[in-house]
């Protein structure tokens, strides 16, 4: 098994686990964004006819999961394990989705980097033949995140320019060795990095050091340079965090060229008044599974590094004056 380790921190997957299906379901605001034509479904009612936004978020994740399974003409009976997560306390969206899917389940939490954790773990399990098919999913919802992390929707709060807008939606994918689709070739699991920042109105800049840390260790382990990738996609650093990420990487003596993009910046246009950009577990999930995979299938990109980023704080630790620990995971996808 040690032969599958590469360098100090990275795993590679010689058995070529593949993303054999992928689905992205988003809400109306995302559907008005520049990537609208890449999503599998755009739901015009963010509440999905439900009374509570938490139930609506579950509908998004359930829809993404069933679409990913149905694309393969399978049923949930055929899936060996479900790895999923979201931003809500006790990972309730994934847990409740697993209740309806009836697939053996492990709930994951890496904040907005959860999709990366799920992908890395699923690829590991499939590559080592512990499972043959794994379902991964991540979701977020503007309203559920606002009420858990910020304020009531109708409250008189003026948003700051560094505030980000939580993406409403969910992404789901099936990982298996048998089938067609891009391969997951490497994963570098992130360390928790904390540069002492406390400003919850600027999550992008808070998470950028974690993204840079994982990215630099990934390059050191694999011996690669940014030039080996067609795209390096960070999760939700948004406008200001992306700037910091590029700065930190440059400081380490590595030039990103024009390879870096950020899912939080891609998903909304500045005219949508979202502050610095999008955020949330669904942000990198729907941009990665919608936009990036479809561009790879079209031959635009061949090798992509996903770098989902997450802030591991809670409103409780924030009130207690703690700084914000962050994590980022790196996953290589190759067409």
């Amino acid at each position: 098994m040690t032969s599958k380790r590469l360098g100090r921190w990275t795993v590679h997957f010689p058995g070529s686990p593949r993303l054999v299906s992928a689905a992205s379901v988003v809400g109306p605001k995302e559907g008005e964004g520049p990537l609208h034509s890449y999503f599998d479904a755009i739901e015009l009612d963010p509440m999905r006819g439900e009374m509570c936004p938490e139930a609506a978020e579950r509908r998004f994740m359930e829809d993404a999961c069933s679409r990913a399974i149905q694309q393969l003409a399978l049923t949930s009976e055929d899936i060996d394990i479900f790895l999923g997560g979201d931003l809500l306390n006790q990972v309730i969206t994934a847990g409740f989705t697993a209740r309806s899917l009836q697939i053996p389940f492990i709930g994951l939490y890496s904040a907005c980097a959860t999709f990366g954790a799920a992908l890395a773990l699923a690829a590991t399990l499939v590559d080592s033949d512990w499972v043959t098919t794994a379902l991964v999913a991540a979701s977020s919802h503007y309203q559920t995140a606002e009420r858990q992390f910020r304020y009531p929707i109708e409250l008189n709060v003026q948003r700051k320019p560094t505030n980000q807008w939580t993406v409403t939606g969910a992404g789901a994918a099936v990982i298996a060795k048998q089938g067609q689709g891009p391969k997951v070739t490497h994963a570098t699991i992130g360390r928790v990095v904390d540069y002492g920042l406390k400003d919850t109105n600027d999550m992008g800049c808070t998470m950028a050091p974690a993204a840079a840390d994982t990215f630099l260790r990934h390059l050191a382990d694999t011996g690669r340079t940014p030039g080996d990738y067609d795209l390096i996609l960070t999760g939700d650093l948004a406008a200001y965090g992306s700037k910091m990420f590029r700065h930190l990487v440059k400081e380490a003596g590595i030039g990103l060229g024009n390879k870096h993009q950020d899912a939080g910046q891609l998903i909304f246009s500045p005219q949508q008044k979202v502050g610095a950009g999008g955020s949330g577990c669904a942000c990198v999930a729907v941009v990665g599974l919608g936009y990036v995979l479809k561009q790879m299938a079209a031959g635009r990109w061949h090798r992509v590094l996903l770098l989902p980023t997450g802030a591991l704080f809670s409103p409780v630790t924030h009130l207690q004056g703690e700084s914000i620990p962050c994590v980022a995971h790196a996953i290589v996808i190759e067409g």
């Binding site: 009420r147 009531p152 929707i153 109708e154 008189n156 709060v157």
Partner: peptide, 25 residues
């Protein structure tokens, strides 16, 4: 409030807003 900031938050109407918005939420 998004437009007017503290101009909407600080008046007593904003105080009412904190109560009603929380009740609705």
């Amino acid at each position: 409030a998004q437009w007017g900031g503290a101009g909407a938050a600080v008046p007593i109407t904003g105080f009412a807003n904190t109560i009603v918005s929380a009740a609705m939420e």
